Amino acid sequence: MTYKTEDGELITGSSPLEILTNLKNGSRFDSERELDEYLEEFLIRIREYYGVAYSHFDYEKTLNYLVEVGYLTAVELI
């Protein structure tokens, strides 16, 4: 699975958990945080930017939400 962030960064992983972990690990400021702590703060920023509230911590649903609001775009690699 590969996704592109709105900033053009490619995030890869074999599961939603791995994708979200790699997203966190690529963060300049929050890479040292625990994943759930990172997601809590990250989703607050997403809500502020996109105006859509989300507070579910199921990793698959969180990944789908980030695609739905346009933060992540699925990429097919050839």
Rank of each mutant, 00 (worst) to 15 (best):
M1A: 13
T2F: 13
T2E: 15
T2V: 13
Y3F: 15
Y3D: 08
Y3A: 11
Y3V: 12
T5V: 11
L10M: 11
I11L: 10
I11W: 10
T12F: 04
T12H: 07
G13C: 08
G13F: 10
G13D: 07
G13M: 12
G13I: 13
G13Q: 11
S14T: 14
S14P: 04
S14M: 07
S14N: 14
S14C: 08
S15W: 06
S15M: 09
P16H: 00
E18T: 11
I19N: 01
I19L: 07
I19D: 05
I19W: 05
N22I: 08
N22D: 05
K24N: 06
K24M: 14
N25V: 04
S27P: 09
R28W: 12
F29Q: 13
F29R: 15
D30R: 15
D30P: 04
S31G: 03
R33K: 15
R33L: 12
R33F: 03
E34L: 11
L35V: 11
D36W: 03
E37A: 13
E37M: 09
E37Y: 06
L39M: 10
L39G: 01
E40L: 12
E40S: 14
E41M: 14
E41G: 15
F42A: 01
F42P: 03
I44T: 11
R47H: 14
Y49K: 09
Y49S: 04
Y49W: 02
Y50V: 05
G51F: 08
G51Q: 02
V52I: 15
A53T: 10
S55C: 05
S55H: 10
H56P: 00
D58K: 00
Y59E: 08
Y59L: 05
Y59V: 00
E60K: 12
E60Q: 10
K61G: 07
T62L: 01
T62R: 06
T62E: 00
L63M: 05
L63A: 03
L63Y: 01
N64V: 00
Y65M: 05
Y65C: 02
V67K: 02
V67S: 01
V67H: 01
V67Y: 02
E68N: 05
V69I: 13
V69T: 03
G70F: 01
G70N: 04
G70L: 04
Y71R: 11
Y71K: 09
L72P: 03
T73A: 06
A74Y: 04
V75A: 03
E76C: 03
L77Y: 09
I78Q: 14
